[in-house]
Design a protein around this nucleic acid. Sequence first.
DNA 1: AGGGTAACAGACTTAAAAGTCTGTTTTACC
DNA 2: GGTAAAACAGACTTTTAAGTCTGTTACCCT
Lengths: 204, 204
Amino acid sequence: MEKQLKRMATMQRIQTTGLELFYQRGYFNTSLDDILKELSLSKGAFYYHFQSKEEYFISIVQNLLFRKVYSSLIEPIEGQEDPLNKIVVCFDDALETAEHNFLDYGFVLSNFITEFNGKNPDIMNYLQDILKVWEVNLVTALQKGKTDGYVNRHIDSEAVATYLISSYIGIRTLMVEGNSKMLRYKYIQQLRQYFKLIEHKEPA
Amino acid sequence: MEKQLKRMATMQRIQTTGLELFYQRGYFNTSLDDILKELSLSKGAFYYHFQSKEEYFISIVQNLLFRKVYSSLIEPIEGQEDPLNKIVVCFDDALETAEHNFLDYGFVLSNFITEFNGKNPDIMNYLQDILKVWEVNLVTALQKGKTDGYVNRHIDSEAVATYLISSYIGIRTLMVEGNSKMLRYKYIQQLRQYFKLIEHKEPA
DNA sequence: AGGGTAACAGACTTAAAAGTCTGTTTTACC
DNA sequence: GGTAAAACAGACTTTTAAGTCTGTTACCCT
């Protein structure tokens, strides 16, 4: 941990490091001791700020995780013109970031969904909420694209959004193995292909 | 566990139940005691047949998991005519099965990949192997589709295969939440759309 | 400056789970 | 039907991790 973090409020430092480690090793596989060791803090410090590991994790989801997803996948598209190109660029950027991780751990959100499914309905709801915000935003962007003349009026925006989210989750899952560069290239290529059907056909 | 399983060799019974529980609760979240309780067996029985939990899991992956993926996603497409329609039907069938699970736990293979990534390179390789077989099969089917006149000769088979696998993994991850029926419908609809670009255009 | 509270340290408790080990039962075979 | 090995039972050990509790340090306020 760098010096620059020294002044960050302890609570936030614990959250930040927690998200990092939970992302890399999974929630159940990361002990509080692991996190606290990384921060040179004690059990006393942790339980002064949080009631339990679960409550702690939920606070991370609602704050850091939401912001992370929002800033990387939602904000770049929100309210923009030409949604299709914006989506391609946004996804490509996100994949580029992932590609440069030495060891990539997939899409944070879907990793947690996989981990908590069937185990903790409470946490699942918080995770699904983030997914929902993303989906709504995509649908809105596509609808706006229709009125602005960028998107074919006959497409089912919700279905397209679902398909986009699916493919993104999937490609991120695949990219955890070695040749993520090639995967990214193939994925973006096919995404562009797919969008050819979605975009507005100029009346000849 | 039903009477019909009573005569199944103990080793296989332990594997079968293990896959079930590992799928539902995850590998690290399922204790051997959980599995053995389900089977009314003891630690003694388990360690008579397997060296460790890890070796046990690997045997499950190489046998049961591989067969499961093979029979549901690979075999229905392998060597068939008209790959695109076969893929749609195959995916739709797989999603229908998933839809009818009361509580669905996603795509077994990708769940494990998510769980083991960064933790156990050994197991990761076995899992990736299965993925690879699937991918190779899809590419082969698409190439055959080209020569048989079902698939557009200009498409990049590998990229299409990657995109298909991605979207499937993603939709299965999404389907763990409630309205899987709607998700399946939307997904298949968009898959068909996507395939319009891939299919062979009859020369007018 | 000193008293009080916020912030933290760290030993301890408790629970769960992997793996061990010794002993018992079942089965196959002569 | 007796015996040896296979198959299994279950108590025990060891480790790990969540959560508790008591004590200590740092900081703020008057």
